[in-house]
């Protein structure tokens, strides 16, 4: 990748004038996925990239650069030129939340927001034999028996949400750290923690009834689990939306941005992508360009307020 960078630098230097006159794109576009091969973000990014490549008439190369929840790829992107040939696929919280929690080399202003395709189905889960139907039952029961309970946690996002939830309900929710959503489900199924917060790994188990989903975190219910209420419906006034996000370095020229946004919008609306998202239990959420930038800004602001509340 550095090699390509070096060559690109040389080309810019030699030509003096970067390829501004020619119609973009005149060479392959690289999408760097901020997570490992085979994860949800990777699978969706590859499928979308495939369709975008057809629309643009240029190959789209997908590379993986996992690390620090997408932050490694995002940091690297800020050092690349905003020419439309370098994109990163990651989750929206990488940009809207992580810089507020950890010291990172980028902020929300360092990117051009290209497209969002799909929303993670985050949810609170428990064992069915607990008898709880919704999160409200769980909270009431735990409050009755001591005012304190543990839950299996895997991200700083869920720690923040539960801290705010604890403030609102008076129930202390102590996070038990785990490394992944799958470990959250394992801890819950083994009965080691009464509750868990999973961003999607629970879905097959919830479908088959091995675990019960008590509440989803998004603004609306999940298509695949229509009986599970949202946290807002339960009256807690909290929500968290995590999107699969494609970004470019900031300052993407308009003549590049326009065809790029159009290609992503068309790809995301393609039936094969819609079907893929359904299979991976993602909510369909498509936005591009300025509209997306607004969503991201409001998410970031929302997290900022949540952080204040949960302190």
């Amino acid at each position: 990748m550095r090699k390509r960078l070096a060559l690109m630098g040389a080309a810019v230097f030699l030509l003096g004038q970067p390829a501004a006159q020619a119609a973009w794109p005149e060479k392959p576009v690289t999408v760097t996925v901020g997570f490992g091969a085979g994860g949800t973000t990777d699978v969706v990014a590859r499928a979308v990239a495939d369709l975008v490549s057809k629309k643009l008439g240029q190959p789209v190369i997908v590379e993986n650069r996992p690390g620090a929840g997408g932050a490694v790829a995002a940091t690297a992107l800020t050092k690349l030129p905003a020419d439309g040939y370098n994109l990163v696929a990651t989750t929206s919280t990488t940009i809207t939340l992580d810089p507020q929690v950890t010291k990172l080399g980028f902020s929300i202003d360092d990117f051009t927001y290209v497209a969002a395709t799909g929303e993670f189905p985050e949810a609170f889960i428990a064992l069915p034999k607990s008898g709880w139907k919704t999160l409200k039952d769980a909270i009431e029961a735990s409050k009755a028996s001591g005012g304190k309970t543990t839950y299996a946690s895997s991200t700083s996002l869920d720690r923040m949400i539960t801290a705010a939830l604890g403030k609102k309900t008076g129930l202390q929710l102590v996070p038990v750290p785990t490394r992944s959503g799958a470990e959250v489900v394992t801890q819950v199924m083994g009965g080691h923690t009464p509750l868990g917060y999973s961003s999607g790994a629970y879905y097959p188990q919830a479908k088959s009834g091995e675990v019960a989903a008590l509440a989803v975190l998004g603004e609306k219910r999940l298509k695949g689990l229509p009986n599970v209420p949202t946290l807002k419906e339960l009256g807690y006034g909290l929500s968290s939306v995590n999107l699969i996000l494609f970004v470019a370095p900031k300052g993407l020229p308009a003549d590049v941005a326009k065809p790029l946004y159009a290609a992503f919008a068309a790809a995301a609306a393609d039936p094969s992508i819609v079907e893929l998202m359904e299979k991976r239990s993602l909510n369909d959420f498509v936005a591009t360009g300025d509209e997306l930038a607004k969503t991201i800004a409001s998410q970031s602001e929302g997290f900022k307020q949540l952080l204040e509340v949960s302190k």
Binding site: G38, G39, Y203, Q205, K279
Partner: peptide, 17 residues
Amino acid sequence: AILIAALTVHGVIPGPR
């Protein structure tokens, strides 16, 4: 985990069923 990825790519979601 990588095997799960390969299966889900093909529409087979590993689960209890």
